[in-house]
Design a protein around this nucleic acid. Sequence first.
RNA 1: GGGCGAGUGGCGGAAUUGGCAGACGCGCAGGAUUCAGGUUCCUGUGUCCUUGACGGGACGUGGGGGUUCAACUCCCCCCUCGCCCACCA
Length: 765
Amino acid sequence: MDDSPEMERTWQARWQADRLYELDLDRVDPNGKFYNLMEFPYPSAEGLHVGHAYTYCGADTFGRYRRMRGRAVFQPMGFDSFGIHTENFALKTGVHPMRLTAKTLDAYRGQLRRLGCGFDWSREIVTSDPSYYRWTQWVFLQLYRAGLAYRAEAPVVWCPSCLTVLAYEQLEGDRCERCGTVVTERVMKQWFLRMTAYANRLVDGLDALDWPDVAKRMQREWIGRRWGAEVSFDVPSLGQQLTAFTTRVDTLYGATFVALSPAHPLARRAEGATAVHPATGAPLPVVVADYVMGGVGTGVIIGVPAHDERDHAFALEHGLPIVRVVEGGDGLPYTGEGRLMDSDEFTGTPSPDARRAIAERLAARGSGGPAVRYRLHDWLISRQRYWGPPIPIVYCSDCGEQPVPEDDLPVVLPEIEDFRPTGTGVAPLAADRVFVQTTCPSCGGPAERETDVSDTFVDSAWYFLRYPSTEFADRAWHDERTERILPVDQYAGGREHVARHHLYARFVTMALHDLGLVPFSEPFPRLRLHGFLLAEGRKMSKSRGNIVNPDDYVERVGADVLRMYLLFCGDWEQGGDFTDAGLHGIERFVGRVRRALTRPSPAGPGGEVDLRTLHRAVDAVGRDLERLKFNTAISHLMRLVRWADEEAERMSAFEWSNVANATVRLLAPFAPHLGEELWERLGQEYSVHEQPWPQVDLEALLEEVITLVVQVNGKVRARIRLRAGANEDEAVKAALSSENVRRHLNQKDPRIGAYIPNRVLSLVV
RNA sequence: GGGCGAGUGGCGGAAUUGGCAGACGCGCAGGAUUCAGGUUCCUGUGUCCUUGACGGGACGUGGGGGUUCAACUCCCCCCUCGCCCACCA
């Protein structure tokens, strides 16, 4: 009968022509706005992944609901089109990333449109477009001026397949998160953003955020704040001190050696020297040990074999003394806490107090003191690749490193033929002499441009600031707009971004806030993470060939069915299982909805049908939507539609019209096209998406007769109908009228275990 | 190794946060429609026992213990799976 895809296309065209999802951002009431942000995709050649469709359908349904609740919903979309992923695909196919991106962007726009999400396309962002990355470069310059961007030589992570350095966040274990290759270490001069300066605030700020606990935990763990102490050892033969960090300075008196990482700059000179214990003055051998890592802490540790497993093993192997200084445990090593022993005046002090006292003592003597360390590294943003925004810095032989003047932005990425990564540590742009050779902005003399481009995550670290200000070509964002529309009211995305994109965006926003450029320091006060979608009970993967392509389904069953099934197959925040069989149930449901709601108006007398079912459904669907429980919201819709279908004939025309209108409005956020179609057929005014959410009559929800569960000795023995709000005596009397209850009471007088009015009466004998 | 989740019919998943376990859907079975298959529509569907039937009973939320009138839900121990971190000093 109906050609759903065709019907859907018609409505999509109309929405677009009517600019239904575009807002006048200068008229929006800041108190009534809802910035509904979802993670924008990078357009790959494989096309939109169903995981993205899953995110967008959930977030869009929520946005439509909020809109019907009276909020001005701002729901933009864009493309994270720079980056290694796109570039790697370009390399594989030999198509230049510029041309490839233009092609994939069109495909993505089409796919996204066909899902029926209410995006404001007038504010689209494309991160690889000079009109966007001009401002990415500008943001970099603001950070640079503030001392938050710096170039330094440091040991860095190198991907031998992508032929570029990577940030620590872009590792999965010891592998590149993009290509899965095991990474190596190099020492290179690179650009960093000083994220560690914000480590403390990044941790503390989490407390006030409405984020899932997992997300907070992941960021906390990633930042890895540790309180402890630094301990400085004099090493007379070296002529300088060695400083170690420890979280267990209470075990200081048990130190029997000092160990350096082989990567420590002084490793070779210090090995075999003697360090002086800062508290006892005892001589300690300085050793180099493989288990001490260069990139962790100071690269120097205090060897306390009695209270650390690795130190213990090392001491046994090398015949170093083992001195117990903490009471407790069965034997050594003992890594727990306890009262100190053999620790001079700290003997007898419990570990936590001892840590404080010893750290203070060290500080007073100038040999260290309390210290905080983070696992977080500064963000390495240089990439020796082509497909990214050039870092806007020039090098002058006289003036040194110079930022490109803001008026000269963007530093345009030239279209070069050979964009392959070189593997030499120098980016492909270095081969373009026209690009490289420039003049110094300071002295006007000859200078050379930086040829590394910046990490894609820099592009996405500020994109949400750009959406409301896309039409302003002369600034990154418009202050008044920003104040009106930001921060984001809800951000929907995936867990994989918590320790990457979400962290970077928080850092950049905090920094911009400190520079007085944005009026808030947290970009995403409310974050929601969608779960993982399986296909037929298995992880989707190319090798299994079970990747669900949203396009195929849109083509076959329509976007509304796909949307509803995605949201029905599991709890959106937990994930679900996509099966073709399950999809079929939604097709049937849509058929039923169509049949039920396009029937001729009934002519019953009215007053025969209990309309509380409708009110209960309105209440339940609304409550579930607030909690993003789309699956149970849809199940309530199914019950409502079945009820409406069955009872319709007994309703008056007026009753039916109320039921049908309300039902279509409840359906509209989930199935926007069908909702619009049915709304029109009901003779209502376009558009259903601008209608208010149906009112719940709370009075109507009250029941006058309830079902009371009667338990005897904890087992359900009867369910009896009872006047709502009945008191205990009435309830007991009613319970005793049940033969089954009497039988189980066995002639004995029951005691009342509990009586919860309108719910349960528990009798005990 | 550390931390955090999760485990419910044949399957996906519900359960007002301690109060009727299995909503809703898939699948399956029976029936109607159909020449037939498919579609569509009704009805039934946790397991076992009992009853001619209405009904009634026992068991049941990974396993074992506990708290409670009452436990999928809280506490302790164990098993399995998933995620995050991991020679982090």
